[in-house]
Simulated scan of single mutants.
Amino acid sequence: MDTYSRAPIVIDLFCGAGGLSTGLRQAGMDPRVAVDFDSNAIATYKANHPEAETILGDVSQVSGEQLKRLAGSDDIDLIAGGPSCQGFSTHGKRIQDDPRNFLFKHFVRLVDEVRPKMFLMENVRGMLTYGKGYFKKQIEEAFEEIGYRTAFAQVCAADYGVPQLRHRVLFIGTRVDHIELSFPKPTHGDRKLGLKQYLTVADALGDLPLMKGNFKQEVRSYVSPPQNEFQHYARKGHGNALTMHVSNKLSDQAQRIADFVRQGQGLRSVPPERLPDRFKKMRTIGNGALRRDCTTLYYRLDPQRPSYTITCYYRNVASGPFLHPWEDRSLSHREAARLMSFPDYYRFEGSNFTRQIGNAVPVLMAKAIGLEIVKSLRNAERRPLRYSKVA
């Protein structure tokens, strides 16, 4: 029987709102089971992937047999997911002993129990340098012990048509001897190399209406037909009713700062004498010179460039590069979702939308990775399967 007369079966651990599963499905894969401890994320996942089974709970309590039973198959092609990694994220305090850093051990355990042909694990770039590569070595050794060859790469979401400079590390692995481990080549970047131009904030958001002081209107209309390939993608299968395009009015302090911030500028563009006292301290070091960091606090997005990383704090302009390029306000949920390349039909359920969107895997990056994995699986099916000795 041709192994891939069907779509490759996927189990998504730490699934969050479903960005990874959505991209893998766009690549022709079949997410059958998803696991997460966040009830809001699971509600969103169910709303957008009704055909998949979901487990709401602690991954440490999940077994491989349970996953295979819910998937309806013992022949799983891929286990994918991004174990929580805030303990060594560069956006927060980097704490080596943060228990979230070791959730990958349950990922490894479930790979060992399910024995998929391949795995995919996504993580933050900071884990490569923390402790001189301690975590990277741990991950590679853990998979080697259960009989999986591994490879890793650093990728940027913008290289795959996502309008966002989001850098991540990917680990892939296989127990099948002749499956080649490879990563997708960039499709966007330097046009001199024959690549498409990076998608910009304007490319992503240009058809969305400005709010003009009305920050809470629940449903709005697009201001134009789709103007480019990305906007066509975002609006495919969706009507003219734009949802979740709501935002926050700036605080008085944020407004006083925003008055001085032009597109592509941040806190350092504000005259020091106009800064609140706590920011004056942030502007200088011991010898009185201006600091070189804090460059993206109160940063107004440059419409002619991809956005910076969308985090869980995109509604707080004081925390990073989340000041709207054309209006004095934070990004809306829909704008943040667009910058993560979620289609506009995608429904976010429950609450904590900022966490659901900011923690997601960008959809189009996931699609590019998925296409590469599908290619590896299909190439391997043309040869007799040979597995590593560890069973």
Rank of each mutant, 00 (worst) to 15 (best):
R220V: 02
Y298L: 01
S21K: 03
Y313T: 10
I172D: 02
L371T: 11
G133Y: 12
G18H: 00
I369C: 06
P225G: 01
D293N: 15
L199I: 15
A157G: 06
Q304I: 03
A17F: 10
T295C: 12
F230M: 07
S221V: 00
E327V: 06
C85D: 01
L297K: 14
F215Q: 07
P8H: 02
Q66N: 09
R378G: 00
D30E: 04
V35M: 01
F215Y: 15
K105N: 10
R220M: 02
T3I: 08
F171Q: 05
S251W: 05
Q61Y: 01
K212I: 01
L181I: 10
L210N: 13
D302M: 13
P271R: 01
S60N: 14
V201H: 11
M365C: 12
I139D: 15
P321R: 13
T200H: 10
S73K: 05
N248V: 00
F279P: 00
N352R: 11
R149H: 05
T174M: 12
L120P: 08
G237P: 06
V62N: 12
G194Q: 04
S63Q: 13
K192N: 09
T200L: 07
H167K: 15
K389G: 08
P209D: 06
G213Y: 03
K117F: 06
A366G: 15
Q164W: 12
R291L: 01
G350P: 00
F104P: 10
T150H: 08
D36M: 05
G87I: 13
G288A: 03
P209W: 06
R115H: 02
M244R: 05
N359P: 11
G133K: 08
L199K: 02
F104M: 03
V124I: 14
D302R: 10
L301N: 03
F348T: 06
I76W: 10
D58V: 05
S5T: 04
V223F: 02
L323Y: 08
R168W: 05
D77F: 11
R283D: 04
L242P: 04
V124G: 07
Q96F: 15
M244Y: 07
P83Q: 09
A202R: 09
D77Q: 05
D344I: 05
G194R: 03
R166F: 11
E140A: 05
V114Y: 03
N240E: 10
R69Y: 05
G358N: 02
E349D: 10
F119S: 14
L208M: 14
A336D: 15
P186N: 04
F353H: 09
I179D: 00
G18M: 03
D98Y: 11
V35E: 03
R386L: 13
V374E: 11
P116M: 10
Y298T: 01
L70T: 09
I285G: 10
E145V: 02
V111G: 08
L56G: 06
L193V: 02
L290V: 02
G286W: 05
L364T: 08
G189C: 06
K280P: 09
S319E: 14
L208N: 13
D58G: 06
A52T: 08
I55G: 05
H232S: 08
V35Y: 11
G288S: 07
E113L: 00
I172Q: 12
I369S: 02
S5D: 14
R315A: 06
L20H: 09
L181A: 14
S376Y: 03
T200M: 07
M121N: 04
G239W: 04
F279V: 10
A254N: 07
A336W: 04
L24C: 15
D259S: 05
K93L: 09
I257Y: 01
V59K: 07
I79M: 13
R347H: 02
